[in-house]
Each structure stands twice: as structure tokens, then as C-alpha cells.
């Protein structure tokens, strides 16, 4: 039952093959006969090289310039912990840390980050040694489906660092005093991460526990 049938073909594979056949048959005879590599202008897309340090490991990639940091992580480095939610910076599922700062990886190009140190959920902890926030999310059940969780956790790591650095928020009463982590502050600072399951109250509990431990 476990052996793979070499004749198994996926539906997607058939569709792609069909499309390729259709494309081939629509080529003119001259084009078929020429049998030359495509010129730089026709059929190729501009590429650029970039070296990123992802979770402590350097990677040199040559990418279609359009590749977002999110797609570079998922499709090229196969780090699929970072999730694609809306792909428009509205949901926060793709949040990663770049040089320690949380950003939406869907709204930046990989080629814009030469030499950057990127940390994804895979770089925060391992199944044997969870990051404190990962452990707290498990303990407090800070999710249902789990799709937003890697983004929530990376965002929380960045958020707690912003708090340590004294960065104010929209709900900070006084701009000139050091902000403290209240439930209001936490909700405001995490508002860029949506959870469609609505696990917010448990997410707040998980982050609060870790923040309390970190600042004690």
C-alpha cells in the first residue's frame, strides 16, 4: 500500500502536459525549425542574484526579480513554515524577522535584501526545543487551524523586541514614557496579525505569559 505506483499521474500534471502540447502545436513551422535558444528579450524574464542568510545559513539564489521574500523562502528554500495568507500585507501570516525586525515577507522582493539575516518560524525553535513563544502557544491553545500561527509567533518575537526598545504604539497614553505591556498595548501591537479562527484571547494569554517572564 505504501509503494508509489510509477504510473500515477496527477490531475495537475495532465493539465500542464495538455497546455504544453497545445502551446507546441500552435508554434509556427519556422519557429519549430529554428530550434534556437530564446533571445534575452523574448521568452525570458529578468533575473538577479541575491545572498540571504536564512536561519543562520547563507543561501545564494538567482531569482526572477518579481520573487517576493515570501516566495523565495517557500518555493526556493522550501521553508514552508512561513505562510501565504492574503499576499497583500493585510493578514500578517507571512511575518518574518529581517535583521531582527518583523515585516510582511509578501510585500518585499527577495533581491532587495542582499546580506540580510532572515529568521523564520523554522529558525526560532525546533520540535525538540521549542522557542518560549511556541511552547506558550501550545500551552494556551493559541490557535485552531494553525495557519496564522507562524506569523503570529514571529510577529510576537518582533513585537516584544520593539517594546524592549521603547517604541510607542497608538494606545500608549504618554509618548514620552516607556511603554509597558498591557492587554490594550498587546492587542494594538499585534493588530497586523489576523486569526480567522478567532483564537485571539488565547494568543494574548500566550504572549503575556512569555512577556511577563522576559521582563521579570
Amino acid at each position: 500500500m505504501n509503494s508509489h505506483n510509477p504510473l500515477t499521474v496527477s490531475r495537475r500534471g495532465i493539465l500542464i502536459a495538455g497546455a504544453a502540447t497545445a502551446a507546441a502545436t500552435s508554434l509556427s513551422k519556422d519557429a519549430m525549425a529554428a530550434n534556437e535558444p530564446p533571445s534575452a528579450n523574448a521568452g525570458t524574464v529578468p533575473t538577479a542574484g541575491v545572498t540571504l542568510e536564512v536561519n543562520g545559513k547563507p543561501h545564494t539564489l538567482t531569482l526572477d526579480t518579481r520573487t517576493t521574500l515570501l516566495d523565495a523562502l517557500r518555493e526556493h528554500l522550501h521553508l514552508t513554515g512561513t505562510k501565504k495568507g492574503c499576499d497583500h500585507g493585510q493578514c500578517g501570516a507571512c511575518t518574518v524577522l529581517v535583521d531582527g525586525v518583523r515585516i510582511n515577507s509578501c510585500l518585499t522582493l527577495a533581491v532587495m535584501h542582499p546580506g540580510a539575516k532572515v529568521t523564520t518560524i523554522e529558525g526560532l525553535g525546533t520540535p525538540r526545543k521549542l522557542h518560549p513563544l511556541q511552547a506558550a502557544f501550545v500551552k494556551h491553545d493559541g490557535y485552531q487551524c494553525g495557519y496564522c500561527t507562524p506569523g503570529q509567533i514571529c510577529s510576537a518575537v518582533g513585537m516584544l523586541d520593539e517594546l524592549r526598545r521603547g517604541i510607542p504604539s497608538h494606545v500608549s497614553a504618554d509618548l514620552n514614557t516607556r511603554p509597558l505591556l498591557s492587554p490594550d498595548e498587546l492587542r494594538e501591537r499585534m493588530s497586523g496579525n489576523l486569526c480567522r479562527c478567532g483564537a485571539y484571547s488565547n494568543i494574548v494569554e500566550a504572549i503575556t505569559e512569555v512577556a511577563g517572564g522576559a521582563t521579570a
Binding site: G89, G92, T95, V101, R102, I103, N104, L107, T108, S155, G158, M159, E162, R165, G166, I167, P168, S169, H170, S172, L175, N176, R189, S191, G192, N193
Partner: peptide, 28 residues
């Protein structure tokens, strides 16, 4: 928004910035 001089002398600007977008977007 976090610059000490902006917070102290141009609070309206710090407040406006903090009212916009999300932290991730403001970081970029």
C-alpha cells in the same frame, strides 16, 4: 514615530504615524 525629538516636539506626527497601518508595515 519612535525618535525622541519627534515624540517630544512633534507629537502630532508621531501619533499620526502610529495610527497608520500595522507594526510590520510601519517597519518597512
Amino acid at each position: 514615530a519612535a525618535d525622541e525629538r519627534v515624540r517630544r516636539d512633534y507629537g502630532v506626527l508621531a501619533r499620526a504615524l502610529l495610527a497608520g497601518a500595522s507594526a510590520q508595515l510601519r517597519n518597512k
